[in-house]
Design a protein around this nucleic acid. Sequence first.
DNA 1: GTCTCATATGGTAGCGCTACCATTTGTCTG
DNA 2: CAGACAAATGGTAGCGCTACCATATGAGAC
Lengths: 342, 342
Amino acid sequence: MTKPRSRRGGGRPTIADVARKAGVGAITVSRALREPGRVSEDLRRQIQAAIDELGYVPDPNARALASARAEVFGVLVPSLTNNVFAEVVRGIYDSLSDSLFRIQIGNTHYSGLEEERLLQVFGSQRPAALIVAGIDQTLGARRLLENAGCPVVQVMETGPDPIDMMVGFSHFDGGKTAAEHLLQAGYRKIGFIGARMDPRSQRRLAGYRAAMEAAGVFDARLITTTPVPSSVSLGRELFRDALAKMPTLDGVFCNNDDIALGVLFECHRASLDVPKQIGIVGFNDLDMMQVSFPSITSVRTHRYEIGTRAVAMALAAIAGNRPDRRIVDLGFELMRRESTQR
Amino acid sequence: MTKPRSRRGGGRPTIADVARKAGVGAITVSRALREPGRVSEDLRRQIQAAIDELGYVPDPNARALASARAEVFGVLVPSLTNNVFAEVVRGIYDSLSDSLFRIQIGNTHYSGLEEERLLQVFGSQRPAALIVAGIDQTLGARRLLENAGCPVVQVMETGPDPIDMMVGFSHFDGGKTAAEHLLQAGYRKIGFIGARMDPRSQRRLAGYRAAMEAAGVFDARLITTTPVPSSVSLGRELFRDALAKMPTLDGVFCNNDDIALGVLFECHRASLDVPKQIGIVGFNDLDMMQVSFPSITSVRTHRYEIGTRAVAMALAAIAGNRPDRRIVDLGFELMRRESTQR
DNA sequence: GTCTCATATGGTAGCGCTACCATTTGTCTG
DNA sequence: CAGACAAATGGTAGCGCTACCATATGAGAC
């Protein structure tokens, strides 16, 4: 003789069931769950017993509706398969796994319009915080973020004008450092090879250019780029193009490590000695860079940490104590390896 | 003189505002949004105009609460950075990007307990569908999935006893095919190198073993595995271990492509000729396999398609027409390349 | 012309939870 | 010992939406 359940809910226990069983008011159960400090030890125990017995799990939808705030972190990244963003997202997940917060990821496909659309969708949920990749939001996206009514963290890059908070590093400096390293190692005809060429890649290119110009060796024909998404095989092709255009090339700074690996393989295939004939520098320092033969010099970035720091800053802001440093520059590290050891 | 807004909601327009402006009942607006066919052309236009003017966006939380069903796909994968799962997830996102459904990803970290916990959390939202990686759920997880009250798709693998629906392929057959290929190519002392050794890797190993035993060349010392997470550098180390244990090794079937790449690099470093002295086969066929020097034979799997098919099946089930084939085997394809061309 | 019946629309009553505002009790002050 | 005040608990009224049922309207059957 089970008591008839209301037509909807599907028979799961509600906060009222718990309250009845524990002999308290519903609001006290709610408080025991959210602010245990404000409920006496005794009641807390009783309530917990009732919860365990009934197998009660709070309904996040009802909670969000009543409190006008969902326990959701919205995360917007341009790609799900690019290891770089996957690492950031992993950092976010790991930092949030013990908390009540859920995570909702949006894939912008490197499109500002898509980012705006997703922001609209995410905003309708009243998320607890938003984490977005990059600093080149469209005006519309920027406005949506400013009016989101929750902490916002821009990640991957630092820049002069944060919407709210920022965690990242300077891609310009990264590119500059890479090019300077090649110059110091004695390379002169140093090419830039870049795929996708999203804003961050553009700034790496700008850094490369600044270093090359400072050394008086810049030449526009050294640059080979494409908007096509990056891949190892594309790296190989672009390097062949670059060589065809400029046969005296003696080094390359690659947009990222996939491209660098493609270049390395093509060097093997064409019997070009690395690092003697060609120096190679990658970007991001994926695990494989240190294992390849020869190992590849790369600019190490702190992707996982970007994710964890972004969450830490957002959580602090939610808790009411906004960090005094709104922009966190995590820097990068040039990993010198065999591929530039002439 | 704006009319005072209720203390909560934050001033965003609600369905009631739209209804008032359009001069219809709230329920008609609701219907116009969800079942446009049931509302006359005229009203639909009026309502759309009101929506546009007010900038109304439905509140998914309220919707979920009222309908006891959230427009959310729950997705559980063991890793976010492993390219294999990232591809599946990308397929899921792309298939769902035009729909109203949101996606919530959970990272189980290859732990059954964590999977159960996440299932509990996800279930509390009453998701529209659940997609989970693998077929080795714990008993508790299985029960949760059976009682989720929504379509469930197990992905990555096929097996005899689906909870609901399944999309994947046979890892046993994949491993067997790889080993048979090496045998046919003339290799005899064929090692198995595996990292992480999750259930799918175990089954690839079993397939390898079956092929080796059938050929009468199986030897337990040919197997080198570790529970440590996979990486290119780990591939290199494991290969050195394998060689130390069995110096006459003339081929390796690797758990996955990262390991295979590590093996290749170690061969370069140790001046072992691939494919003459060592044959290499990978698994998954990442882009880089076809570009490496020499290019690496690998078992191509259809990861992106697994994601899209899983969504298609779930959507069909939600719409009421469950596919008659509950188990979809997408197979795999052996990509023969230079690394096994003796 | 009456009687069905499908179509189009609306009203009411929640969904499960929490914000807001009591109310009660106990503790401390002077 | 009265008065003030903090701590602990509860009642009520929604949050924004949709399920359910009712009603109105017009088309078609005979």
